[in-house]
Amino acid sequence: MKTLLLTKQEVGSLISMKEVIGAVGEAYKAFSSGQVVQPDYIGIHLPSPRGEIDFKLGYYKANEVISMKASSGGFIDNPTAHGVPNGMGTILLFDARSCALTCVMDGSLITNLRTGASGAVSVQVLARKNSKKITTIGTGNQARMQIRAITEVMKIEEIHAWSRNPDALARYKMDIESEFGIPVIVANSKKEAVEQADILITTTRGKGSLVEADWVKPGTHIIAIGTDQQGKQELDPAIFKNAKIVNDSISQCTEKGETWHPLNEKIITKDDIHGEIGEILLGTKPGRENDEEITIFDSTGMAIQDNTTSEKIYRNALENNIGTFFAFI
Protein backbone atom coordinates (compact mmCIF):
# COMPACT_ATOMS: atom_id res chain seq x y z
CA MET A 1 0.00 0.00 0.00
CA LYS A 2 1.23 3.49 -0.88
CA THR A 3 0.65 6.85 0.81
CA LEU A 4 0.01 10.08 -1.09
CA LEU A 5 2.10 13.16 -0.24
CA LEU A 6 0.66 16.60 -1.08
CA THR A 7 2.64 19.84 -0.75
CA LYS A 8 1.17 23.21 0.19
CA GLN A 9 1.20 24.30 -3.45
CA GLU A 10 -0.57 21.12 -4.52
CA VAL A 11 -3.16 21.45 -1.74
CA GLY A 12 -3.92 25.01 -2.85
CA SER A 13 -4.49 23.90 -6.43
CA LEU A 14 -6.84 21.07 -5.53
CA ILE A 15 -9.81 22.82 -3.94
CA SER A 16 -11.87 25.96 -4.47
CA MET A 17 -13.37 28.10 -1.74
CA LYS A 18 -16.85 27.00 -2.84
CA GLU A 19 -15.83 23.39 -2.28
CA VAL A 20 -14.43 24.26 1.15
CA ILE A 21 -17.70 25.99 2.12
CA GLY A 22 -19.57 22.84 1.09
CA ALA A 23 -17.18 20.60 3.02
CA VAL A 24 -17.48 22.74 6.18
CA GLY A 25 -21.27 22.74 5.95
CA GLU A 26 -21.15 18.95 5.65
CA ALA A 27 -18.87 18.80 8.68
CA TYR A 28 -21.25 20.82 10.85
CA LYS A 29 -24.23 18.67 9.88
CA ALA A 30 -22.27 15.48 10.51
CA PHE A 31 -21.16 16.68 13.94
CA SER A 32 -24.64 17.68 15.06
CA SER A 33 -26.20 14.42 13.80
CA GLY A 34 -23.88 12.11 15.74
CA GLN A 35 -21.77 10.88 12.82
CA VAL A 36 -18.48 12.13 14.26
CA VAL A 37 -16.06 10.89 16.90
CA GLN A 38 -13.99 13.89 17.93
CA PRO A 39 -11.92 13.76 21.13
CA ASP A 40 -10.92 17.00 22.84
CA TYR A 41 -7.90 18.45 21.14
CA ILE A 42 -4.54 18.50 22.88
CA GLY A 43 -2.38 21.61 23.08
CA ILE A 44 1.23 22.01 24.18
CA HIS A 45 2.47 25.47 25.15
CA LEU A 46 6.19 25.85 24.72
CA PRO A 47 8.44 28.33 26.56
CA SER A 48 8.58 31.91 25.24
CA PRO A 49 9.39 33.13 22.64
CA ARG A 50 8.02 29.93 21.20
CA GLY A 51 4.26 29.43 20.84
CA GLU A 52 1.90 26.47 20.93
CA ILE A 53 1.17 23.31 18.96
CA ASP A 54 -2.30 21.72 18.86
CA PHE A 55 -3.38 18.24 17.79
CA LYS A 56 -6.92 17.69 16.48
CA LEU A 57 -8.28 14.21 15.76
CA GLY A 58 -11.57 13.27 14.12
CA TYR A 59 -13.38 10.24 12.67
CA TYR A 60 -16.30 10.67 10.26
CA LYS A 61 -18.44 7.56 9.93
CA ALA A 62 -19.82 8.48 6.51
CA ASN A 63 -16.49 8.75 4.70
CA GLU A 64 -14.60 6.23 6.88
CA VAL A 65 -11.70 8.65 7.25
CA ILE A 66 -9.75 9.43 10.41
CA SER A 67 -7.90 12.73 10.25
CA MET A 68 -5.18 14.05 12.53
CA LYS A 69 -3.88 17.59 12.27
CA ALA A 70 -0.88 19.10 13.99
CA SER A 71 -0.85 22.90 13.82
CA SER A 72 1.52 25.37 15.42
CA GLY A 73 1.38 29.12 15.89
CA GLY A 74 3.02 32.04 17.63
CA PHE A 75 6.63 31.08 16.89
CA ILE A 76 7.63 34.65 16.16
CA ASP A 77 11.36 33.91 15.79
CA ASN A 78 10.89 31.09 13.27
CA PRO A 79 11.54 33.04 10.03
CA THR A 80 14.84 34.49 11.23
CA ALA A 81 16.04 31.73 13.58
CA HIS A 82 14.92 28.63 11.70
CA GLY A 83 13.93 29.72 8.20
CA VAL A 84 10.36 28.43 8.49
CA PRO A 85 6.98 30.20 8.99
CA ASN A 86 5.80 31.21 12.47
CA GLY A 87 2.84 28.83 12.08
CA MET A 88 2.66 25.48 10.27
CA GLY A 89 0.33 22.53 9.88
CA THR A 90 0.34 18.90 8.76
CA ILE A 91 -2.64 16.60 8.20
CA LEU A 92 -2.58 12.80 8.18
CA LEU A 93 -5.50 10.81 6.74
CA PHE A 94 -6.14 7.19 7.71
CA ASP A 95 -8.56 4.70 6.16
CA ALA A 96 -10.77 3.89 9.15
CA ARG A 97 -11.46 0.38 7.85
CA SER A 98 -7.80 -0.63 8.21
CA CYS A 99 -6.16 2.40 9.86
CA ALA A 100 -3.68 2.49 6.98
CA LEU A 101 -2.13 5.91 6.33
CA THR A 102 -3.52 7.08 2.99
CA CYS A 103 -2.32 10.68 2.77
CA VAL A 104 0.08 13.21 4.28
CA MET A 105 -0.62 16.81 3.29
CA ASP A 106 0.34 20.31 4.26
CA GLY A 107 -2.31 21.57 6.68
CA SER A 108 -1.47 25.25 7.10
CA LEU A 109 -3.59 26.38 4.15
CA ILE A 110 -6.46 24.06 5.09
CA THR A 111 -6.79 25.62 8.54
CA ASN A 112 -7.13 29.08 7.01
CA LEU A 113 -9.52 27.88 4.31
CA ARG A 114 -11.91 25.96 6.53
CA THR A 115 -11.91 28.70 9.18
CA GLY A 116 -12.76 31.28 6.53
CA ALA A 117 -15.46 29.01 5.16
CA SER A 118 -17.02 28.66 8.62
CA GLY A 119 -17.87 32.36 8.59
CA ALA A 120 -19.49 32.05 5.17
CA VAL A 121 -21.60 29.09 6.31
CA SER A 122 -22.82 31.13 9.28
CA VAL A 123 -23.63 34.09 7.02
CA GLN A 124 -25.89 31.89 4.91
CA VAL A 125 -28.20 31.11 7.84
CA LEU A 126 -27.64 33.91 10.37
CA ALA A 127 -26.91 37.17 8.53
CA ARG A 128 -29.62 39.47 7.19
CA LYS A 129 -30.20 38.87 3.49
CA ASN A 130 -29.78 42.59 2.81
CA SER A 131 -26.40 42.82 4.58
CA LYS A 132 -24.03 45.07 2.64
CA LYS A 133 -21.30 46.16 5.05
CA ILE A 134 -18.66 44.00 6.72
CA THR A 135 -16.48 45.18 9.58
CA THR A 136 -13.27 43.34 10.40
CA ILE A 137 -11.62 43.83 13.77
CA GLY A 138 -8.19 42.49 12.95
CA THR A 139 -6.60 42.58 9.50
CA GLY A 140 -4.40 39.47 9.33
CA ASN A 141 -4.59 36.41 7.09
CA GLN A 142 -7.85 35.15 8.59
CA ALA A 143 -9.58 38.50 8.10
CA ARG A 144 -8.70 38.20 4.42
CA MET A 145 -9.88 34.59 4.26
CA GLN A 146 -13.23 35.52 5.80
CA ILE A 147 -13.75 38.09 3.05
CA ARG A 148 -12.78 35.55 0.37
CA ALA A 149 -15.34 33.09 1.70
CA ILE A 150 -18.20 35.49 2.40
CA THR A 151 -17.99 37.05 -1.07
CA GLU A 152 -18.76 33.58 -2.43
CA VAL A 153 -22.18 33.59 -0.74
CA MET A 154 -23.14 37.29 -0.52
CA LYS A 155 -22.49 40.53 -2.37
CA ILE A 156 -20.67 43.00 -0.14
CA GLU A 157 -20.55 46.71 -0.99
CA GLU A 158 -18.01 48.02 1.54
CA ILE A 159 -15.68 46.90 4.28
CA HIS A 160 -14.80 48.81 7.44
CA ALA A 161 -11.59 47.78 9.15
CA TRP A 162 -9.71 48.43 12.37
CA SER A 163 -6.31 47.22 13.58
CA ARG A 164 -3.88 48.27 16.27
CA ASN A 165 -1.18 48.25 13.60
CA PRO A 166 -1.50 51.11 11.07
CA ASP A 167 0.89 49.42 8.63
CA ALA A 168 -1.10 46.17 8.72
CA LEU A 169 -4.29 48.15 8.19
CA ALA A 170 -2.84 49.92 5.16
CA ARG A 171 -1.70 46.61 3.63
CA TYR A 172 -5.12 45.08 4.27
CA LYS A 173 -6.87 47.97 2.52
CA MET A 174 -4.55 47.70 -0.48
CA ASP A 175 -4.83 43.90 -0.70
CA ILE A 176 -8.61 43.68 -0.36
CA GLU A 177 -9.33 46.52 -2.78
CA SER A 178 -6.92 44.99 -5.30
CA GLU A 179 -8.32 41.45 -5.01
CA PHE A 180 -12.05 42.16 -4.74
CA GLY A 181 -12.61 45.74 -5.87
CA ILE A 182 -14.55 46.37 -2.66
CA PRO A 183 -13.78 49.71 -0.98
CA VAL A 184 -12.15 49.40 2.44
CA ILE A 185 -12.82 52.26 4.85
CA VAL A 186 -10.14 52.62 7.52
CA ALA A 187 -11.85 53.36 10.83
CA ASN A 188 -10.49 55.86 13.31
CA SER A 189 -11.65 53.69 16.20
CA LYS A 190 -13.08 50.25 16.97
CA LYS A 191 -16.39 51.89 17.89
CA GLU A 192 -16.62 53.67 14.55
CA ALA A 193 -15.96 50.42 12.69
CA VAL A 194 -18.39 48.29 14.70
CA GLU A 195 -21.25 50.78 14.38
CA GLN A 196 -21.16 50.37 10.59
CA ALA A 197 -21.36 46.58 10.56
CA ASP A 198 -24.10 44.43 9.12
CA ILE A 199 -21.63 41.57 9.58
CA LEU A 200 -18.93 41.93 12.24
CA ILE A 201 -15.87 39.66 12.10
CA THR A 202 -13.34 39.45 14.94
CA THR A 203 -10.10 37.66 14.08
CA THR A 204 -7.58 38.75 16.70
CA ARG A 205 -5.56 37.08 19.44
CA GLY A 206 -7.34 39.36 21.91
CA LYS A 207 -6.92 38.94 25.65
CA GLY A 208 -9.80 41.25 26.60
CA SER A 209 -12.99 42.82 25.32
CA LEU A 210 -12.47 44.61 21.99
CA VAL A 211 -16.13 45.13 21.05
CA GLU A 212 -18.55 46.79 23.49
CA ALA A 213 -22.21 45.86 23.65
CA ASP A 214 -23.59 49.36 23.01
CA TRP A 215 -21.64 49.63 19.73
CA VAL A 216 -23.48 46.71 18.11
CA LYS A 217 -26.60 47.75 16.19
CA PRO A 218 -29.74 45.57 15.95
CA GLY A 219 -29.61 43.04 13.12
CA THR A 220 -25.83 42.59 13.25
CA HIS A 221 -24.39 39.14 12.66
CA ILE A 222 -21.16 38.57 14.60
CA ILE A 223 -18.57 36.00 13.55
CA ALA A 224 -16.27 35.41 16.54
CA ILE A 225 -13.16 33.63 15.29
CA GLY A 226 -10.26 34.59 17.54
CA THR A 227 -11.19 32.92 20.85
CA ASP A 228 -10.34 29.21 20.84
CA GLN A 229 -8.90 28.77 24.32
CA GLN A 230 -9.40 30.21 27.78
CA GLY A 231 -7.50 33.44 28.22
CA LYS A 232 -8.53 34.79 24.82
CA GLN A 233 -11.46 37.20 24.45
CA GLU A 234 -12.80 39.63 21.83
CA LEU A 235 -16.40 40.47 22.78
CA ASP A 236 -18.02 42.27 25.70
CA PRO A 237 -19.91 39.42 27.44
CA ALA A 238 -22.96 41.71 27.69
CA ILE A 239 -23.47 41.34 23.92
CA PHE A 240 -24.62 37.78 24.56
CA LYS A 241 -27.47 38.82 26.87
CA ASN A 242 -29.90 39.73 24.10
CA ALA A 243 -28.39 37.82 21.19
CA LYS A 244 -29.12 34.55 19.42
CA ILE A 245 -26.06 32.47 20.34
CA VAL A 246 -24.91 29.77 17.93
CA ASN A 247 -21.85 27.59 18.52
CA ASP A 248 -19.92 25.28 16.21
CA SER A 249 -19.59 22.88 19.16
CA ILE A 250 -21.44 23.71 22.37
CA SER A 251 -19.04 21.59 24.42
CA GLN A 252 -15.99 23.42 23.03
CA CYS A 253 -17.43 26.93 23.00
CA THR A 254 -18.64 26.74 26.58
CA GLU A 255 -15.22 25.56 27.75
CA LYS A 256 -12.81 27.65 25.68
CA GLY A 257 -14.74 29.80 23.21
CA GLU A 258 -16.15 33.30 23.37
CA THR A 259 -19.31 31.83 24.92
CA TRP A 260 -17.34 30.89 28.05
CA HIS A 261 -17.04 34.53 29.16
CA PRO A 262 -20.77 35.38 29.57
CA LEU A 263 -21.30 31.96 31.16
CA ASN A 264 -18.48 32.58 33.61
CA GLU A 265 -19.90 36.01 34.51
CA LYS A 266 -23.41 34.49 34.84
CA ILE A 267 -24.80 36.84 32.18
CA ILE A 268 -26.26 33.78 30.44
CA THR A 269 -26.79 30.10 31.22
CA LYS A 270 -26.29 27.16 28.87
CA ASP A 271 -30.05 27.19 28.28
CA ASP A 272 -29.62 30.57 26.57
CA ILE A 273 -27.49 29.04 23.81
CA HIS A 274 -29.71 28.68 20.76
CA GLY A 275 -27.86 25.64 19.42
CA GLU A 276 -25.14 24.45 17.11
CA ILE A 277 -24.84 25.64 13.55
CA GLY A 278 -25.14 22.03 12.38
CA GLU A 279 -28.63 21.90 13.89
CA ILE A 280 -29.63 24.97 11.87
CA LEU A 281 -28.20 23.46 8.67
CA LEU A 282 -30.09 20.23 9.39
CA GLY A 283 -33.32 22.19 9.88
CA THR A 284 -33.87 21.09 13.48
CA LYS A 285 -33.29 24.64 14.81
CA PRO A 286 -34.23 27.94 13.11
CA GLY A 287 -31.60 30.36 11.88
CA ARG A 288 -32.20 34.10 11.75
CA GLU A 289 -35.91 34.78 12.39
CA ASN A 290 -36.11 38.56 11.94
CA ASP A 291 -34.03 41.54 10.85
CA GLU A 292 -33.63 42.93 14.38
CA GLU A 293 -31.90 39.95 15.97
CA ILE A 294 -28.27 40.18 16.94
CA THR A 295 -26.77 36.80 16.06
CA ILE A 296 -23.43 35.46 17.27
CA PHE A 297 -21.56 32.57 15.70
CA ASP A 298 -18.87 31.42 18.11
CA SER A 299 -16.38 29.31 16.13
CA THR A 300 -13.67 27.43 18.01
CA GLY A 301 -12.76 25.17 15.09
CA MET A 302 -13.24 21.41 14.92
CA ALA A 303 -11.33 18.41 13.66
CA ILE A 304 -14.28 17.36 11.51
CA GLN A 305 -13.82 20.52 9.40
CA ASP A 306 -10.26 19.41 8.67
CA ASN A 307 -11.54 15.91 7.96
CA THR A 308 -14.14 16.77 5.33
CA THR A 309 -11.97 19.43 3.68
CA SER A 310 -8.81 17.33 3.48
CA GLU A 311 -10.74 14.25 2.32
CA LYS A 312 -12.14 16.34 -0.57
CA ILE A 313 -8.61 17.47 -1.45
CA TYR A 314 -7.40 13.85 -1.34
CA ARG A 315 -10.19 12.70 -3.69
CA ASN A 316 -9.49 15.59 -6.06
CA ALA A 317 -5.80 14.67 -6.06
CA LEU A 318 -6.53 11.06 -6.98
CA GLU A 319 -8.92 12.13 -9.76
CA ASN A 320 -6.36 14.56 -11.20
CA ASN A 321 -3.26 12.39 -10.66
CA ILE A 322 -1.58 15.05 -8.49
CA GLY A 323 0.91 14.37 -5.70
CA THR A 324 3.69 11.90 -4.95
CA PHE A 325 3.17 8.35 -3.72
CA PHE A 326 5.60 6.75 -1.30
CA ALA A 327 5.71 3.54 0.73
CA PHE A 328 6.86 3.08 4.33
CA ILE A 329 7.44 -0.64 3.77
Rank of each mutant, 00 (worst) to 15 (best):
T102L: 10
C103V: 08
M105N: 00
D106F: 09
S108R: 11
S108M: 04
L109T: 11
L109V: 12
I110C: 02
I110L: 11
N112M: 12
R114M: 00
A117D: 14
S118P: 03
G119E: 04
A120L: 08
A120K: 07
V121A: 00
V121K: 01
V123F: 10
L126I: 08
L126N: 02
A127N: 03
R128W: 08
R128G: 05
R128E: 06
R128M: 08
N130Y: 08
N130H: 12
K132S: 15
K133Q: 15
I134A: 12
I137F: 07
I137E: 00
G140T: 04
Q142A: 09
A143M: 05
Q146S: 08
I147N: 09
T151K: 11
E152G: 06
V153W: 07
M154K: 14
I156C: 09
E157W: 07
E157D: 15
E158A: 14
E158P: 11
E158T: 13
E158Q: 15
I159W: 07
I159K: 12
S163Y: 05
R164M: 00
N165C: 01
P166L: 10
A168P: 02
K173R: 15
M174N: 15
M174F: 13
M174P: 10
I176Y: 04
I176V: 14
S178N: 15
E179I: 08
E179R: 06
F180N: 07
F180K: 10
I182D: 05
V186Y: 06
V186I: 15
A187F: 04
A187R: 00
N188A: 12
S189L: 13
K190L: 14
K190P: 14
K191H: 11
K191E: 14
E192Y: 04
A193E: 01
V194L: 01
E195V: 01
D198M: 06
D198R: 03
L200Y: 00
T202F: 00
T202M: 01
T203E: 01
R205V: 14
R205P: 13
R205T: 15
K207W: 03
K207M: 09
G208V: 10
G208W: 05
S209H: 03
S209A: 14
L210A: 03
L210E: 06
L210N: 01
V211T: 04
V211I: 15
E212V: 01
D214P: 04
D214Q: 13
W215T: 04
W215V: 05
W215E: 05
V216C: 07
V216M: 03
K217Q: 14
K217Y: 08
K217A: 14
P218I: 02
H221Q: 13
I222Q: 09
I223P: 02
I223W: 00
A224D: 00
G226F: 00
T227F: 07
T227D: 05
